[in-house]
Each structure stands twice: as C-alpha cells, then as structure tokens.
Design a protein around this nucleic acid. Structure first.
Lengths: 105, 105
DNA sequence: TCGCTACATCGCAATTCACCGATGTACTGT
DNA sequence: ACAGTACATCGGTGAATTGCGATGTAGCGA
C-alpha cells in the first residue's frame, strides 16, 4: 500500500492539531499582521517565535518545540533571518491536507 | 465567543483521529460490506464491535474504548440491537467537520 | 434458572506527551 | 572580544494516553 505512508502522515498531522494551543497558533498565523511589528514584515517572512510565545503564554522552549511539531507535520514553514526564526502557514500543504482529509476521512 | 466550544470540539476530533488504528477503523467503516456477515446487514445498522476488534487485532476492551472515543468525537454512531453494538460513520457530522476544518484550519 | 455471548467499565503497568528550566549555538551591536 | 538577544535542544518531572486482563451487566438460548 502506498497509502501506508500517507496514513502515517495524516496521523502526524492530527496529532499536531490535537492540542488546543497548537491549533490556536495555526489560526493566529492566518493574520500575521495581528502580531506586534518586526523589522521584516510578518506578512512576507512570517511571525517571529517570540511573538507566538508571548501570545500563547508559554515558555520559550515549549514554543520552540510546538513550532517544530507543526513544522514536522508540514503545516508551517520556518524562515531563519539573522537571529530570528519566522514561521508562517504552509498554505499549499494545508490545502493538500484538506484534500486528503476529504478523501480518506 | 461561540468558537471556544467549536475549537474544543475540533481538538477532540483531532485527538481521536491522531491514532493509526482509530483512523483506520473510520476508513474501514466506509465499506461495511467488507466485514463478515451478521444477522442484521452492516450496511443498514452498522458493523458489530467484534468484527472491528478482529480486523484491528486488538483486545475487546481496547476496541470498546476506541469506539467510545470515536463516538464522543461525533465521528460514529452506535446502534444497540439485542446484545450487539453496531457502529457506523456519522456522515453528516463528518461532512460538517470537513467544513469546519476547511474554515478554521 | 443456568450457562454462554457481546459489550462496557474498572484497575493497573507501560509508554508517550506536556512543560519547564538549564544549557548550547549563532547572530548583533559595542 | 564581549555582552546581550533569539532560538534550539537537553534533561527531568508530572500528567495523560495506551493497552491489557479482570470484573460487571445485559440479552439469548437450553
């Protein structure tokens, strides 16, 4: 079955979304401009980790691994510029996921 | 916000699907006729728990609580007839979920 | 009534997850 | 070179999940 890997990926995605804070972060990233200003505009490069951490009210280490989980699930991408890691939604991947959900689930 | 409950529900759904066996079960239930025959046809009343348990290769207690989790997430319904509990997909709820996923995620 | 089957629930060990502080790495301004 | 910031990763602790056998409940047939 070539679906075996696809199914495992789906499980990874569902696990990533099965946490209230991570789900909220993914929705927040729909409006990058709602975050505090940064040197590089969030609408272009993504939102700085510090801002996500601040809004979620979690520690820096937790924020970092939350974003790593979302990234491994293919829901966000990370753009490192200087000392900042910027995160934004991977819209093509999310759309593909929506298709996969509609197809298999 | 009325979204608060909706979001919590979404998390519950994602948690339920964030397990390979439970996700597989939900897909198996798309073809009830692929299960062994029962006194009442599976296409009408749903699939008997024993058949799900057998295909998944898990214990009876695990099968029972897996289905309870899927049921609490609103993904399946249970129809008890005599001594058998029949499970089938709650298609309207799943379709609504698909909408919610497309909207929020 | 008695024994059997199907199922739910309980109680428990093992594994995984959540979350944090501490530490390590890399970049920035002085 | 040095201090400070941003971030990733490590190590540990407590909470939740997994999965099972054992027990409880209800329907069914003899």
């Amino acid at each position: 079955m070539t679906d075996a890997t696809a199914e495992a990926d789906l499980v990874t995605v569902f696990k990533a979304l099965g946490h209230p804070t991570r789900l909220a972060i993914l929705e927040w990233l729909k409006e990058p401009e709602s975050f505090p200003p940064q040197d590089r505009p969030a609408t272009e490069v993504g939102v700085c980790l510090k801002h996500i951490q601040a809004r979620a009210g979690i520690s820096q280490s937790t924020a970092s691994q939350f974003m790593a989980i979302l990234q491994r699930a293919g829901l966000v991408t990370c753009t490192r510029i200087g000392q900042w890691s910027h995160y934004r939604r991977d819209e093509p991947a999310i759309a593909a996921l929506g298709e996969a959900v509609a197809r298999t689930v």
